[in-house]
Design a protein around this nucleic acid. Structure first.
Lengths: 140, 140
DNA sequence: TTCTTGACTTAGACTGTGTCTATCTTAGGA
DNA sequence: TCCTAAGATAGACACAGTCTAAGTCAAGAA
């Protein structure tokens, strides 16, 4: 966390209270907040922070590779601070909960040359979908 | 195509000119149109068709399992008529072009029991990302 | 320490995508 | 041919995100 702030400062980031609070809100495991949720939590600590600043800061952190942008549904994008360990996502149909998961093997390897159509492929994102234990109990 | 209209009629669909035109627009391979694009093409043949009708019809076709909803970026959802053959998507970073691709193996099998967190998993979507041949030429 | 300046923040207007509602039209059965 | 519920329509609305112009401030300079 403080490593993050150090890294950012090293890259020439001006360290404002707004940026610090956004970075703090995104600390932790299995954190997948929307921009609005980040804004709400940041505003608890810094009431005057604006939506634009949250969007700007999130965009900068994504560009710097410090957080990941995830859109598992057609709704708001979510931001995942777990950017330094490769992983995929598991999403509940019913409640939308997201878990980080680690499948075996490399999904890229499953795409034969004949299916690459001249693309230079650099990433493969896998989204697993299902019903979480809680939702399964309540619905059945 | 006419099979599609037959199937829909069998399921009690009222066959209106609007629905027919939307279904026709979505015919073909590697078709991944946004709702607005579907509306524009439908309006070429039926100028008075409304956006709401296009959205309604697309939603019904998705519910019936006749087309797939794909959101590969955070922008508009795209609609894929290739719903009866399992496949994944390959997306160009630069121009957004989408290709249907067929990886080997079952991505679901790559997720060990210990990584399932009590979920009942029913689907795995893979999005491959890279640069298509055209964009690679123009940028390099 | 104070000054300076350009990077940063802000409020709020604006855009794109999708949904909803009240009213009108029409496919298809009687 | 007529009836009627299913479907279509225009346009208001909602949500997520972007942009702009003006004000603020972090951090280097003196």
């Amino acid at each position: 966390m403080s490593d993050l702030l150090e890294r950012l400062r090293d890259r020439g980031w001006r360290l404002t209270s707004q940026r610090r609070v956004v970075a703090e809100v995104l600390d932790g495991d299995h954190v997948h907040l929307t921009a609005d949720e980040v804004h709400a939590r940041a505003a608890e600590r810094l009431p005057e922070i604006s939506r634009a600043t949250v969007y700007n800061t999130l965009g900068e952190l994504v560009t710097l590779g410090e957080i990941l942008e995830v859109s598992t549904d057609g709704r708001a994008k979510r931001y995942d601070p777990n950017a330094h360990q490769p992983h995929q996502h598991l999403v509940c149909f019913a409640c939308g909960t997201i878990r980080d998961v680690h499948p075996t093997g490399d999904p890229l390897a499953a795409l034969p040359a004949g299916e690459r159509f001249g693309f230079t492929i650099t990433a493969a994102e896998v989204t697993y979908r299902g019903l979480c234990a809680d939702c399964a109990r309540h619905s059945g």
